[in-house]
Write a protein that binds this DNA or RNA. Structure first.
Lengths: 347, 347
DNA sequence: TTGAAAGCGCTAACAT
DNA sequence: ATGTTAGCGCTTTCAA
């Protein structure tokens, strides 16, 4: 219906709008950014109407170049197909969306092979913040990189952490203790532990909690019952089989991750061991499927989404921590379901 | 070790490098972009060395503004916590990485509530391509938007599709037929169907295949055995219960998604029905956990990662389809595992 | 309250 | 082979 038609060739810019409303394009910029202070109601209406009619859309790259901020944050994860990281991502996404940011996901692989590439790209893109869920101890090169990055861009570790860098995570030690105490309270004394590599804070923290609980109960720690290899389904299964082959096999296993716990239960099943009849299992994280699996998983509820959301908030929100190192630990709780049961003395 | 130290204040630009190597910054630009044709070996080495020493990193926003391309593509999905979409994402990510692109994920929610917001942002960011896994029939507003977008930015639908837009997906009809034929071959005649809303091409295609198979076998189609509500675990469970309550309940159910299939098996279990003894179940997609679940899932292998990768290739690769509409359908295959078994006549 | 103008860092066409 | 120059579309300081 509008009499004048803009050049439908390319998208309208501030100048296009300026032309249509008879003001300078810098004025248009002011108005469109909501600088209500210094504009007349009339011109504002005129400009807004023109922008509307022309279907104006700010150019992201131009704004980023002019302001130096990209309204984007980077999320480093090993692999999004792992429910742990898709849950974490959901929280990050929610937090980012609330603050008007978008999330660029960098899956660096479970072996971390694309870590350097991801960091390089993150730096080029000038993201406004980094949430890192890939931390592990020991890899000096990575460590150095993380610290370097931290001085360039707001940076926070989520769920996994390492070094003197900001982080937010669930209380892994508490979780490990709760899980193990639960199994102890059911009468189990031969309790196995299966998880990923110990270079991950998640593994080492949960293992610490496991040992604490054993100590408190006066149950001797037996390294034979502890299997911490790769963080993968197949590794968990072979770990389970190794424990089953023991002369004095465990009657219960605490597994540091729900998916791995399912793999362990499956491996037991494949050897004729039913859970929880012949083997009690406690998982970790309380992912979506843990309530659907048969048997449903007794597990530790790790607030992954909350961790993700809070990480973003601390990184970019009003109470951003600026340049101090923060270390936030969230409580976790035990969720009792079907996969754990009292020890059968007559086994 | 280098004698001259740059201003460590802000990151080096082309001009910084130019200053250090005594050439014009446009020359630096040429060299850094690999324009080997028109540069001396000497200057090139000098410039490259300076860039290296200064730790130069191209500014992404500036390049995007100058070239009009963002090296970014947008992926629209309902929810990344659903394994279907994280698998699809893995493929998209791989394809994008191969071509030097990054992926911006837009989770619009299972109700699609953030669709408009996502599209708006995608347009502002000027992504170089859109992979859309959220298509559904019937929503006119969305349909219009999709078509509009298609004329602005390279666009392709993946897995789910709707309308006269480019798409790449598995052969849902074939999958539905294979799944149902498998159950028929096991002697089942009362075969239920549970999936998400029929507005999804995935649901309707698989339902078509299901009907085809029944027709071919001379088994009458019974609408009472078909439950297509929300695409969610809880809806699948209540659908299962509704079928179990039937006067003449099914002995087998074809479920249009693995996660939902697990929920169905779980619901059956909660009513004392064991799979596959009392109920055979076939899932769809062959996600990671379907081999771990107890019983492991007989399912249709839907090449989600391949779909994602090919979508990107068609969108941005060498043989990009430019502006024609492409419709690519990938074959699927049946994977027989534990959740399906011959009908027990004496039930 | 509005206009003018510089500049963000880069690309690319043109000139030398 | 290299330098010059004009933008890309926006923000922002300074004048008017």
């Amino acid at each position: 219906m509008s009499a004048q038609r803009p050049q439908s060739t390319s998208r309208p810019t501030l100048r296009t709008i300026a032309g249509f409303s008879g003001v300078h394009y810098s004025t248009v910029s002011r108005i469109l950014r909501g600088d209500v202070q210094r504009t007349t109601v009339e011109t504002r209406e005129r400009v807004l109407k023109a922008a509307e009619e022309l279907g104006y859309r700010p150019d992201f790259a131009a704004r980023a170049l002019a302001t130096g901020r990209s309204q984007t944050l980077g999320l480093l994860v090993p692999d999004m197909r792992d429910p742990v990281f898709s849950h974490l991502h959901a929280g990050v996404e929610r937090g980012a969306h609330e603050l008007g940011y978008r999330v660029l996901v960098y899956p660096i692989g479970n072996d971390g092979s694309r870590f350097a590439d991801g960091i390089e790209n993150i730096l080029q893109r000038g993201v406004d913040g980094i949430v890192d869920a890939t931390a592990h101890f020991g890899a000096d090169a990575d460590r150095a990189t993380r610290e370097l990055v931290r001085n360039t861009t707001p940076y926070i570790q989520a769920n996994r952490f390492s070094g003197e860098l900001s982080r937010i995570a669930g209380d892994d030690v508490l979780g490990g203790r709760l899980a193990t105490e639960h199994l102890l309270s059911l009468g189990h004394r031969r309790i196995g532990f299966i998880a990923g590599e110990r270079v991950y804070s998640t593994t080492s923290g949960r293992l610490d909690g496991y040992r604490e609980a054993l100590d408190n109960a006066g149950v001797p720690y037996d390294e034979d019952l502890v299997f911490t290899r790769h963080y993968s389904l197949s590794s968990a299964a072979s770990g389970a089989n190794r424990l089953f082959d023991l002369e004095n096999p465990p009657t219960a296993i605490f597994v540091g991750d729900d998916s791995l716990a399912m793999a362990v239960i499956r491996a037991a099943w494949d050897r004729g061991l039913q859970t929880p009849r012949d083997l009690s299992v406690v998982g970790y994280n309380n992912v979506l499927m843990s309530g659907v699996f048969i048997p449903s998983l007794t597990t530790i509820d790790n607030p992954l989404e909350e961790i993700g959301r809070l990480a973003v908030e601390r990184l970019l929100g009003a109470d951003a921590y600026a340049h101090q190192v923060i270390e936030l630990t969230l409580p976790v709780r035990l969720v009792v379901r079907e996969s754990s049961a009292p020890l059968r003395r007559n086994s």
